[in-house]
């Protein structure tokens, strides 16, 4: 898509430049025509919705490091919930794939809560979220030794707000390389 757009723009500019060189009443304020097209991926995953299409794009064969850096690393949770929601299945599967491909690779899963409530009880709740993600990984074949579930409770919010929008961003588990 980038190259297509660039080449179109380039041609338009070249054309405009050539015409301007003629100095014959060209309207410069007329925008150069730029064509925008949606690119259809070759594997045809487009249109299946949100997070799942991101997963299909992870290609371990083209260098794990590059793929890992773009990999989603956060799983969000509902209030008072420890259930890994369906929309994050792709994230979990991507990490499982990575860990299963390299048994020496390890991840730490950090559970977090929103700011409401006591620090110690929240620490325990965050631990439950981390354990839920760790369990999802081991069910996909990842070894117990590759993942450690830990918790920060409410101590490391992703965002500092005091409303539901902020709380929703803070109820999470982060998957981090070790």
């Amino acid at each position: 898509m980038f190259s297509l757009k660039t080449s179109t723009t380039f041609l338009a500019l070249v054309a405009a430049g050539l015409m301007a060189g003629c100095a014959s009443g060209v309207k410069l304020d007329k925008p150069a025509p730029v064509e925008t097209r949606n690119v259809t991926p070759a594997d045809g995953t487009q249109g299946q919705g949100g997070a799942e299409s991101q997963v299909a794009n992870v290609d371990l064969g083209k260098g794990a490091a590059g793929a890992a850096s773009n990999m989603p690393r956060t799983v969000y949770f509902d209030f008072d919930s420890f259930v890994v929601k369906e929309e994050f299945r792709g994230t979990i599967e991507a990490h499982a794939k990575l860990l299963n491909a390299d048994r020496k690779k390890k991840e730490v899963i950090e559970g977090h809560t929103d700011e409401r409530g006591g620090s110690e009880y929240n620490l325990a709740l965050g631990q439950k979220r981390a354990e839920a993600v760790a369990k999802s990984l081991t069910l996909l074949g990842v070894s117990d030794q590759q993942v450690e579930a830990v918790s920060y409770g409410k101590e490391r919010p992703a965002t500092d707000g005091h409303d539901e929008a902020a709380w929703a961003k803070n109820r999470r588990a982060e998957l981090k390389d070790r």
């Binding site: 325990a124 439950k128 354990e131």
Partner: peptide
């Protein structure tokens, strides 16, 4: 409180 054997 430890989680070494699972939950807190």
């Amino acid at each position: 409180t430890l989680t070494r054997d699972g939950q807190s």
